[in-house]
Amino acid sequence: MYIIGENIHILSDKVKEALTNRDREFFMDLAVRQVEAGAKAIDVNLGPRKKDFAEVWPWIIESIESVVDVPLSIDTTNVEGMEAALQTIKKTQPILNSTSAEPERLEKVPALAKKYGAKIIALTMGTSGIPVEADARVEIAVGTLIPHLMEIGFNMEDLIIDPLVLTVSGCQQYCPELIGAVNMLQYSWDPAPMISVGLSNVSNAVPKENRPLINRVYCAMLMGVGLQMMIADPLDAKQNDVIRWIEAKDTSTPLAALYNKIAERTAAGEEPQFEDFDMSDSDQADIWKTTQILLNKVIYADGYLNQ
């Protein structure tokens, strides 16, 4: 699993505070810790930075590049900010995060990525938003994103499609469709485009204590349909266990075997079955309930584990 570390994100209060104080050490430490935990790239999301982008992007890129060698993912909607960051990067091919299929963005962002030789994350989101159905999202990729990138002569090996994870708390009907979209995208083009998702989005607006479980169960399902890249929290040790168990087909413990079973079922186009779970084990019972909300079988509620 190629994890793009998500932890430098402006929605985190600590990140916000460190950015206000221009606390170099904070960002250097957070970057190093993510790479040490296995992140293959580092996402840097500072928000739009409409006023100070010309100063803040070079500052943070230099800070992070001074301590790690991995690619940096420039995560902003501000095109000028993107360019300020791209101009600063010295070490490794960066990732531009992101363009959508909206005409205005599609016109500007891929051209920028091409100019600086960056990879690009392209979202399956058009002018009328994010479609629920898997095939409508694939259609945005093959009908709009890929043709446009080919037309401008973009190196297709540098294209990463993101079919967009939405939260189970409020956008529950999107959750099973995203699994289908990840699956279908791999067969939608030859050669298959790289696919990445923002995993933790699945638990946005979920109480903090329940987020990791939802993230790792969804991760197992998505690995089942072949996901190999995601923006996620590399510091989540339990999630890393699940990734390792599935990659190594490690079934040496009941929990490892169960996560492998979930991935296998999803790979086979099946749903996890009740009999796969030992319901006398509270961890397994919680995982079962989590599969049911993620497949939109049972309505999500904050207290779903107590039901």
Binding site: Q172, I299, Y300, A301, D302, G303, Y304, N306
Partner: peptide, 15 residues
């Protein structure tokens, strides 16, 4: 007007 919140309140009350 939200299915998630409706269900959550029922859980809280029955708890």
């Amino acid at each position: 007007m939200d299915v998630n919140l409706a269900k959550q309140l029922n859980i809280l009350i029955s708890d």
